[in-house]
């Protein structure tokens, strides 16, 4: 039996991943979220589609380091985790977060600190058994600070930086660390934007699931974002600052 833990399981992209994993034989899903009702709704949805799948749900305070660590080790001890996906994130309205420091703080915590707390806890578990795959959803928004989205972007930059370090640590072990970088994707997070140009969450999820079967690495979803972020990263600051991004 493969045991897969999904943190932020109510997110659209995570749900799409769960739909793919649930199709696999001998797979058991462990869903982690902050709200019991929403988690159970995700579970029910999966069970109507796949009545056979084994699914557990767990709620935890996403900013409580000790509670997170306890939960991860409980799941780890009871079943042995094969894969963990950390998917939650929060993108505020940039102007609102500039104006309101508590919204800024919430963003930094929910989108930056919290995923790293989960990741480090899974890492501890995986390195101890020298096995397991950890995937964390960062974003292409990490590439460069830009006026329209630097607060959310900085949380993702922190995650990417952190994951690079974790991947380094995993070198020479059997633990796999996957840094997942979707481009703009059609989910409630982007629900206020025009639909055009947004990737489908199901496609992004297919890429995530595939990447989490593979080796340590950084994965852009869709792939074209590797090139786009490379170019954006190479633009001289003088040029970049003139762009309305």
């Amino acid at each position: 039996m493969q045991h897969i833990v999904i943190v932020g399981a109510t997110s659209t992209i995570a749900r799409e991943c769960a739909l793919i994993w649930a199709k696999r034989p001998e797979t058991s899903l462990h869903l982690v979220g902050r709200d019991d009702e929403r988690l159970l709704a995700v579970r029910s949805d999966l069970l109507v589609r796949f009545p056979e799948v084994l699914i557990s749900t767990h709620t935890v305070d996403f900013l409580d380091a000790r509670a997170i660590d306890t939960l991860v080790s409980e799941i780890g001890q009871s079943v042995g985790i094969d894969k963990a996906l950390v998917a939650h994130g929060f993108m505020p309205d940039q102007l609102a977060a500039q104006a309101d420091l508590s919204l800024l703080k919430e963003t930094l915590e929910v989108s930056g600190v919290s995923p790293i707390l989960f990741a480090e806890s899974f890492a501890k578990h995986f390195f101890a058994s020298d096995s397991g795959t950890l995937g964390v959803i960062s974003s292409v928004a990490d590439v460069r600070g830009r006026r329209k989205n630097y607060i959310y972007g900085s949380t993702k930059a922190m995650i990417s930086y952190y994951l690079a370090g974790l991947a380094h640590r995993a070198f020479g072990t059997s633990v796999k660390i996957i840094s997942l970088k979707p481009g703009p994707t059609a989910t409630p997070m982007t629900g206020h934007l025009p639909n055009r140009g947004l990737a489908k969450a199901s496609k992004v999820a297919a890429g995530i699931v595939e990447a989490m079967d593979g080796p340590t690495g950084v994965v852009f979803l869709p792939k074209i974002w590797r090139l786009i972020t490379l170019i954006i990263g190479l633009l001289p600051t003088r040029v970049f600052n003139r762009l309305n991004l």
Binding site: T12, V42, S44, D45, V48, R49, T187, P188, G191
Partner: peptide, 19 residues
């Protein structure tokens, strides 16, 4: 209000066909 993310299945009764 875009409702397309309000898209979960809640329950299905395979005896009665009630979804």
């Amino acid at each position: 209000w875009s409702t397309t993310f309000l898209n979960k299945l809640i329950s299905f009764d395979p005896d009665l066909g009630v979804l």
